[in-house]
Each structure stands twice: as structure tokens, then as C-alpha cells.
Design a protein around this nucleic acid. Structure first.
Length: 570
RNA sequence: CGGGAUGUAGCGCAGUUUGGCAGCGCGCAGCGUUCGGGACGCUGAGGCCCCGGGUUCAAAUCCCGGCAUCCCGACCA
């Protein structure tokens, strides 16, 4: 491609609405342009990158035995009502009506559609398993789109759905998808960690997220420095430890009330009493089955809401809201303690159970209690891991040190079970003639999000450094030609080189613009093709071109008549 | 949905306090000089100053209403 013909305008300044490198650079390099909040056009260079990612995903999915389809983006709302997800997804769906007032939604995902298709086509155990995937646009009306392509309202996603006779068969495909994902992200040049995750709205059981390690990521994940344990922070557990702030002394004095006027926070109380925050207990109120329940953790730690819900399951739990507190003045927010007369269940972290001499809320406004001992001064009904894991905690598996990092979720694999097949009657007949719901898995890759994640990992102060295989072109060829006969000679040589490289199968972006050398160098670094070839008058006189590897900055000279063989590897 | 901010040329911004010809840099077009790290000179094109209403002799600027965008938080696969 000739740059003189390419639809491209690079920007010298960062766009005012971009915060992170990938957003700034993708706009500055003319890869994308915003048309509305969270909605982008893909211009020629960006489109080529997106197609390259798509092709990698396609090759690996095909190799893993999945079959490509295209499912509708416009989906009838009625289908979503059958699984109850019209409500569960709720305002996150773009909804609209046709002229006959029938409700539709733009696809945020496609479990319903694909399940209904498989249900109507397949009905025998002989047909299974089957794994269908598509690479298609998805729509989520995010509350707050941000970070360019990382959280957009329109995004390209690969979604696959597999159907099985039983969980054992599902696990084979799940493992194959997991391995395919590792290859996909490796080929994209991403540093990715697979982490155990909490099941979200999609439902189901076992699932893993693939996190591209990046400080701008929106998700925290925990990983062990000594073993291979890794989990989303919502799902992560640590080994049971006694809080360092608690005393092991068995002869704690009797509990004693202390006035704490207006001190409804851990930090206020700790400062007032002159004790560390981890000698206090934090009691968080939940509504469990209509009754008060408490999650109790050391004062310096945060409650993992998901862990609490797991601990009280199958009962449904939700955090107390301001309305709940207003309705029940006997539960004074800021002064709640586990020794409460109305509490139905006290769930405490093991570190609480193992400690003594805690400062707890007195359940009266402006008052706390010190020297509280578990099982003596307040009861604990359930001991469960409740704290959000932090760096420095110990691994539940091996005792090693846990670390917390941030990541961009670029993939997610789920073992769904029978939630959708039951709701949509996707059943099969077994060899004994009995009917069963199909067992399902689903597997997502954020294709457009990968583009942003790759730029986050592969850029420097001068621009993008595309990994091979993703770059819009393999090579950027620059001609530095002045006026006159010498310049014409350089131009001719560059034209020949451009032609020969293309003939040899090398994809080339040829900067044939009538621009000054500085402009060409700066644009080449910004755009980030892996290899730059510079042909100028001085080099031509000696029969050489200059090669620069964009990512490392290494330069060398290649004889002009060896450029094609060197770059094409032939 | 709470808190904060912004909306002026393709991009980045000044001008709004104190009402008085619509500005600057980059980019774009033409001519000339340059030609190995975002060159220089001259000339020029380009505007619904977010939208609607109001005040005024006069509104980018003041008042009222709306919309959009961004940031922080909450929410979320």
C-alpha cells in the first residue's frame, strides 16, 4: 500500500478524551475514530489489525474442532424472556421495537439463539458433541464506556458454544478451548494469566478468565509466587491465618464499653483508641432471607461479597442498603458488632475466630466494646474465608506468597451446565431412549479488546510496536529522495524494491509521500510496523538500504539486492 | 445513579471574569526554498462559537432550559 493513497491522517497531539496509551495511540495512528460514546469506526490500518486478530482466533478455533457460523445481531426479546435474562441483563441491553411493536435487542451475547438452533436441529446422543462459534459484533449499553476499545458499547467478540451429553464430555472440549486460548494469546503477543473466576450473569459452574497483565486493567486478580494458583479477586481465597493484630493471650479481661462519639469508621475508632486497625472487627450487614446476617472480618480488611454469598448459599444474600438501615434503627450503621440480638447468622473469617481481644461495635450509636473474645462475648455461626485477598497473604494451596495484579479480561471460558438447555428445551435422547438436557459450555474472546490490550503491552514513547502477525503491514518502506537526478534515481530504486517485496509476498506500507525525512521517520515509529526499510541517496550510492527493527531500535544495513530475500526469508 | 469538569475550524487550545470585527498552534491548499529524525518563507481556504429561548443597540461572552462528551465513584462480562 502506498501511503500517498492510504486513507490515513495521523495526529500529532493526543486526543483530549483519551486517558490510556492504547486509546491515545489507536486514535493518533488513525486506526479508529469515535462516532459516539463507546462506539468506534475502524479505519484501514485498524481494520487490518482487527482482521489479523480475527484470523488468529479463527485458525485456532478451527484447529480445536469448532465450526464457524454467523448468528443474528438483532435478536427477538421473546427468546431472552424464556431464560429470564431480559431482566438479568436489563438496562445493559440495547432494546428496540419494530414497526409491529415486537421487542428486539442487539446481541450482547448469543446463548439463547444458539441453544434454540441446536435444540431444533439435534436430538440424539449420536449428534453430540458439537461446538459452534462466531466472530461478530456485540452490544452492551455500558453505564460508563471508557478507555477507548477496552470498555466500548460495540465490540467484536468471538463466542463459542459447545453441547454435550454429560459433564465429562464437556470437560474435554473445555480443556481444548482452554489450550486454544493459550495459543491465541501467545500468537497475539500478550502476556496472559488464566485465573479461576466467579460465575457472573452467564451462570454456570467452573470458569476461567484470561487476564492480559496490564496496570490499566479493570480487574484485580490474585496469583501465587510459588505454585500455579491464580484467581479473580472475587473468587480468590487465602490460607486461614490468625490476624497479626490479635492477641493469643487466653486471659483477656472482661469486655468493656468505650464511648466513640461520632466515630462510625474503622480509622476513626482506631485513631481514637490508639490501636492498630487490625485489632478492630468490621461487621458488614447483609439481608439473608429477610433476616439480618453479619460478615465479620478484621478492621484492616475488606469483605468479599461473593465469598459471603457462597458461605450462606443456598440462601440469597444482598448487602444492606441505606433504606434497610433507615427502616431498622436497631442496626446502627458504623457501630454494628457481632453481638447483636437480632442477628440470624454470624459469618466470620478464620482470622476473626482465631483472634482475641477485639474491638467491636456495641450496636449502640457512639459506642464500641473492647476486649471482645469470640465464642465468649459474641457467637460465630459459620467460619468461612471472607476477606478480599491482598498482596502478602498466604496461598491456600501451598502457603506461598500471594500477589495481586491488574489485568484486562481478554477471554473467558465457562462450564455452563444445563441452565440454557433446560430453559430452551435443548434435549437429546440417550441410547436407552431417555431424554436429557444437553450439557453446555461457552467460550468468549474479546477480539477488539485484544487490539487495545496489545497496544498497552507493545508501545513506547514514540508510538506502537506491533507484534509480527498483528501489524497492519510487515514492513514500512521509506524513500528519502531529494529533487533532481539523484532524487529520481532513489525514487526509481524504491519503486523497484516496493514491487519486488510485494511480489515476494511481503506486505509493505510504502511511504512514497513527498514529505520531509523527519515526518516519515516520526510516522513510521508512530504507526509501528515491525520492520522499517529506509532508502536514501547516500545508501543507494553504496548499494545499501537501512533496516530498523521498530521494537528494539536495532539498525543495520542490507545490500539493496538482498533486501527481498532477507525480508521474505527465501 | 451520585460528585467534578468541558463543549469555539479536521486535531490541540485561547478568548467568557469586565458584552463591541472569530483567534493561535498543528493539519489542509497554492508558490518558492529545503530534503537522514515531526524544515522555512509568502499566500490562502476552512466556523450553526453544542441546541433552544431570553436580556441588550449589540451575546462565544450575561440569564433560563435542554443535549452531548470526559473524569472520579457506584454498577458490570
Amino acid at each position: 500500500m502506498r501511503m500517498s493513497q492510504l486513507f490515513l491522517r495521523t495526529l500529532r497531539d493526543d486526543p483530549a478524551d483519551a486517558e490510556i496509551d492504547s486509546h491515545k495511540l489507536l486514535v493518533r495512528t488513525g486506526a479508529i475514530r469515535r462516532i459516539s460514546s463507546g462506539i468506534y469506526s475502524w479505519l484501514p490500518l485498524g481494520n487490518r489489525v482487527l482482521r489479523n486478530v480475527e484470523q488468529i482466533v479463527r485458525e485456532e478455533m478451527d484447529a480445536a474442532g469448532a465450526q464457524e457460523v454467523i448468528l443474528p445481531i438483532v435478536q427477538p426479546l421473546e427468546l431472552w424472556e424464556r431464560t429470564g435474562r431480559d431482566v438479568a441483563y436489563g438496562p445493559q441491553m440495547f432494546k428496540f421495537k419494530d414497526r409491529r411493536e415486537t421487542g428486539f435487542a442487539l446481541a450482547p451475547t448469543a446463548e439463547e439463539v444458539v441453544t434454540s438452533i441446536v435444540a431444533s436441529e439435534y436430538s440424539s446422543y449420536r449428534d453430540l458433541p458439537v461446538n459452534l462459534y462466531q466472530i461478530n459484533w456485540k452490544y452492551r449499553d455500558e453505564l460508563r464506556p471508557r478507555f477507548g476499545l477496552l470498555r466500548s458499547r460495540e465490540f467484536l467478540m468471538k463466542d463459542a458454544y459447545s453441547f454435550h451429553v454429560d459433564v465429562e464430555d464437556l470437560r474435554k472440549t473445555y480443556a481444548a478451548m482452554y489450550e486454544a486460548y493459550e495459543r491465541i494469546f501467545a500468537r497475539c503477543g500478550l502476556t496472559v494469566r488464566a485465573v479461576e473466576a466467579q460465575a457472573g450473569e452467564i451462570g454456570g459452574d467452573i470458569n476461567h478468565e484470561f487476564m492480559a497483565v496490564a496496570p490499566v486493567g479493570e480487574d484485580d486478580f490474585v496469583w501465587c509466587r510459588s505454585c500455579d494458583y491464580a484467581a479473580n479477586v472475587e473468587a480468590a481465597v487465602r490460607s486461614a491465618l490468625v490476624s497479626p493484630g490479635s492477641s493469643a493471650d487466653a486471659s483477656i479481661a472482661a469486655p468493656e464499653a468505650v464511648p466513640t462519639p461520632g466515630m462510625g469508621s474503622i480509622s476513626d475508632v482506631a485513631a481514637h483508641l490508639g490501636v492498630p486497625e487490625n485489632t478492630l472487627l468490621k461487621s458488614i450487614a447483609f439481608d439473608v432471607g429477610g433476616k439480618l446476617a453479619l460478615a465479620v472480618v478484621p478492621g484492616d480488611r475488606e469483605v468479599n461479597e461473593f465469598a459471603f454469598k457462597r458461605a450462606v448459599a443456598p440462601l440469597a444474600a444482598r448487602l444492606y442498603t441505606d433504606e434497610d438501615f433507615a427502616r431498622n434503627p436497631a442496626i446502627p450503621k458504623g457501630f454494628i458488632g457481632p453481638d447483636h440480638s437480632e442477628v440470624s447468622i454470624v459469618v466470620a473469617d478464620p482470622s476473626v475466630h482465631g483472634g482475641q481481644g477485639w474491638v467491636i461495635g456495641a450496636n449502640r450509636v457512639d459506642e464500641h466494646t473492647r476486649n471482645a473474645v469470640p465464642m465468649r462475648d459474641f457467637r460465630i455461626d459459620v467460619v468461612a474465608d471472607l476477606v478480599i485477598v491482598a498482596s502478602g497473604d498466604s496461598c491456600a494451596r501451598c502457603g506461598g506468597e500471594l500477589s495481586v495484579d491488574r489485568g484486562i479480561e481478554v477471554g473467558h471460558v465457562f462450564q455452563l451446565g444445563t441452565k440454557y438447555s433446560t430453559a430452551l428445551d435443548a434435549t437429546y435422547t440417550d441410547d436407552a431412549g431417555a431424554q436429557h438436557p444437553m450439557v453446555m459450555g461457552c467460550y468468549g474472546v474479546g477480539v477488539s479488546r485484544i487490539v487495545a490490550a496489545v497496544v498497552e503491552e507493545h508501545s513506547d514513547e514514540n508510538g506502537i510496536t506491533w507484534p509480527e502477525g498483528l501489524a497492519p503491514y510487515d514492513v514500512q518502506l521509506m524513500v528519502l529522495a531529494g529533487k533532481g537526478d539523484a532524487g529520481a534515481g532513489v525514487k526509481d530504486a524504491a519503486e523497484r524494491l516496493y514491487r519486488d517485496l510485494q511480489a515476494a509476498g511481503v506486505s509493505v506500507l510504502f511511504d512514497d509521500r513527498d514529505a520531509s525525512p523527519g515526518v516519515k521517520f516520526a510516522d513510521a515509529d508512530l504507526l509501528g510496523m515491525p520492520v522499517q526499510i529506509v532508502l536514501g541517496a547516500k545508501g543507494l550510492a553504496r548499494g545499501v538500504a537501512e533496516r530498523k527493527i521498530r521494537a528494539t531500535g536495532e539498525r543495520d544495513e542490507i545490500a539493496i539486492d538482498e533486501v527481498v530475500t532477507t525480508l521474505s526469508g527465501r
